[in-house]
């Protein structure tokens, strides 16, 4: 078994709220510089930048898990990690049919372009990417599982777009695979009120929107090797695999 340093929530420049320096090349360079061995790039409701990110990561020997940060009907964020590109295409179709297509202005809300390997603009989404899907939290978790993916409660202790801010606390019987927290003290406080939170795997990630944030929140993945199957086992604490915050 090996220990890997991972950051499972990073945005690229494709997210409207992320810095335009977050290109696939720059992200991969930064990950290498801060010693991350595996990452997940999770843009808001879009997986369009992932193929180029995968290419850049591969060139530098960094493992990329495919991810997306979904906004549910309750306006809370779920991170979905997906097993392969086929599942990503399926997810993109699901998102595009369920998202509320709100009018969008790049000047007010930020750019939603994606780029090619040479950092040239390859395309742009013309509806607001952080808009909610017409899909409840429970339905979304089910959809992620149907695509073979993992559903993670994003930054659960944050005062915005989180399960705690939108729903007050974790709903009972929610089939979530893991919890991502932002600040340990805030998460521990939540656990005091809802002890069953600790039954899930929990870890931290950077949710980086700027290059200097990459790897600031990171976790230790204890697995045989870096692949999606092993990640699933770690999330479900099977066969000695696990994930936990790295300090």
């Amino acid at each position: 078994m090996q220990n890997f340093s991972v950051d499972l929530h990073i945005h690229s420049l494709h997210s409207p709220c992320a810095d335009l320096y977050m290109s696939p090349q720059m992200i991969a360079d930064r990950c290498q510089a801060v010693g991350l061995q595996a990452i997940a790039v999770c843009d808001h409701n879009s997986l369009r930048q992932l193929p180029v990110v995968a290419q850049c990561c591969q060139q530098r020997g960094i493992h990329l898990f495919y991810g997306v940060e979904i906004t549910t009907q309750e306006e809370l964020h779920l991170v979905a990690l997906l097993p392969n590109w086929e599942a990503c295409l399926q997810m993109q179709e699901y998102i595009d049919t369920h998202i509320m297509k709100l009018p969008y202005s790049p000047e007010k809300l930020g750019d939603q372009i994606w780029v090619d390997i040479n950092e040239q603009i390859a395309g742009e989404v013309d509806w607001y990417l952080n808009a909610p899907l017409k899909c409840t939290l429970e339905k979304m978790v089910e959809a992620i599982h149907n695509m073979g993916g993992l559903a993670i409660a994003a930054h659960i202790d944050r005062p915005s777009y989180s399960i705690s801010s939108q729903l007050g606390f974790m709903p009972t019987k929610l089939a979530i695979d893991a919890i991502e927290y932002h600040r340990l003290e805030a998460f521990q406080k939540m656990c005091l009120l809802q002890a069953e939170l600790k039954q899930h795997s929990f870890y931290t990630a950077s949710d980086a929107h700027w290059l200097n944030q990459i790897g600031v929140g990171r976790s230790l993945l204890h697995v045989e090797q870096l692949n999606f199957e092993e990640l699933c086992k770690a999330f479900h604490q099977q066969d000695g695999r696990f994930i936990k915050a790295e300090f």
Partner: peptide, 10 residues
């Protein structure tokens, strides 16, 4: 406008 079961709980 929230319709989740946590509304009932709260």
């Amino acid at each position: 406008i929230q319709t989740h079961k946590n509304v009932v709980a709260v």
